[in-house]
């Protein structure tokens, strides 16, 4: 379970919070879509969740553990797929997976079994011996996804995970997200692909300018907005010209 309680992040002397008193609970066994326009605060929220940043105010808890108090313990529970190709790309795919497995203290047998399964699933077995800097964008994304799963995390955090993936890999990833959630894990991901969010997510939240503007199941959101698609609702809620007018309950 993920809990943001009044989580706020202000960068330096900025007069505006990048994340403004975000209160949000993501239950176990849920695929949670985190939506918002560019610069809305999605990556900031994910950075607070993964312990890369500390909140200026409020708290973030993962399975009851406070990120500020026990950052290492929280990180141990999270598998994180970052946006923007953040990885040690001078390593080979195998070296990278081994490195992540070492950091998360995964046994040899487990890491081998999981790596072989996921490498095969994403058609990366042959490429795993090559350096990551020789990979295409999609292949890097696949290795990043596999690395995040190598320790079977209780919480899986993905920042724009579909970017660069081919249709097959994208399909496999969505299946995996569903599978993990059904097995009791929490899957938290940000995306701009609203169709994916609508079909895949158990719950969706939309933020704008660091503030949560709505949350609920895709079905609930559609009902509240008079049967609009998620895309139409998103456009309406995040339209700056209509700021403050389009907020839809459930806050």
């Amino acid at each position: 379970m993920i809990e943001f309680a009044q989580a706020t992040k202000v960068y330096g002397k900025s007069d505006r919070a990048a994340l403004d008193h975000l209160t949000l609970t993501v239950p176990d066994g849920c695929v949670f879509g985190f939506l918002g326009p560019n610069g809305a605060g999605k990556t900031t929220a994910i950075s607070l969740l993964t312990g890369a940043l500390m909140p200026t105010e409020g708290s973030v808890r993962v399975n009851g553990v406070d990120v500020t108090q026990e950052p290492v313990e929280v990180k141990r529970q999270i598998g994180y797929v970052p946006d923007g190709m953040q990885m040690y790309d001078r390593l080979t795919g195998n070296e990278y997976l081994n490195f992540i497995a070492d950091i998360f203290d995964v046994s040899k047998a487990d890491r081998q079994a999981r790596a072989e399964r996921y490498l095969a699933l994403f058609d990366m077995t042959k490429a795993a011996g090559d350096r990551i800097n020789s990979y295409s964008r999609g292949m890097k994304q696949k290795i990043s996804v596999i690395a995040a799963l190598i320790h079977e995390p209780k919480v899986w955090v993905l920042d724009e995970p579909m970017v660069g993936l081919d249709p097959r890999a994208s399909f496999e990833l969505k299946q995996l997200m569903r599978e993990k959630a059904d097995a009791g894990a929490t899957v938290f991901f940000s995306t701009h692909v609203l169709e994916v969010a609508e079909r895949l997510c158990d719950q969706v939240a939309i933020i704008r300018r660091g503030q949560l503007i709505t949350q609920g199941t895709p079905e609930e959101l559609r009902q509240r907005s008079g049967d609009e698609s998620l895309e139409e609702l998103f456009l309406e809620l995040t339209d700056d010209s209509a700021a403050g007018e389009g907020e839809v309950g459930a806050k």
Binding site: T92, N94, N98, F99, A101, D102, I103, D105, V106, S107, K108, R111, Q112, A115, T125, K126, A127, A128, G129, D130, R131, N133, S134
Partner: peptide, 24 residues
């Protein structure tokens, strides 16, 4: 550009394990 192998070497698939300090 980075050249890649046509066939990945099998020894690359050996799975080791070490502590955090050593791994880093």
């Amino acid at each position: 550009e980075r050249s890649t192998r046509r066939h990945s070497r099998q020894q690359a698939l050996s799975w080791g394990g070490s502590g955090q300090l050593m791994s880093l």
